[in-house]
Amino acid sequence: MNGLDNEKDRAALKSRLEEELADTTFTSHTKVLQRTHPSSRRAGLHALWNRELEFTVKPGSLIIGTAALLLLLASPYAVHTLHNTPFPSDKRELIEAGGNVYWEDIYRKEVKRLEN
């Protein structure tokens, strides 16, 4: 009984659907297939490009990560400043210390060297 009813219902549904879709024609079979089953490399890349990633990040590690990143970026500047004294041909000052006359930048450098 049940089977019969089902059969009937399905037939009715089908005829209704056919009736409703009478004006619609589906032509993009290929596009759909390309999306669901990518075949070419370009399409593959495109899919990758648009892929959505999901990360789980703890606030702590986010802060640490950002700090590390900034440090990494700043390191070349820091190294540069540490290794470079003011440039000689810029305004230089003479200073007197212990009866000698020095260029101030060289004197400071020497004092720093002796401290270490």
């Binding site: 892929r51 959505e52 990040v57």
Partner: peptide, 10 residues
């Protein structure tokens, strides 16, 4: 915390 980001935006 979850972060969702598309590869292209990343």
């Amino acid at each position: 915390m979850k972060i969702r980001i598309k590869v292209k935006h990343l």
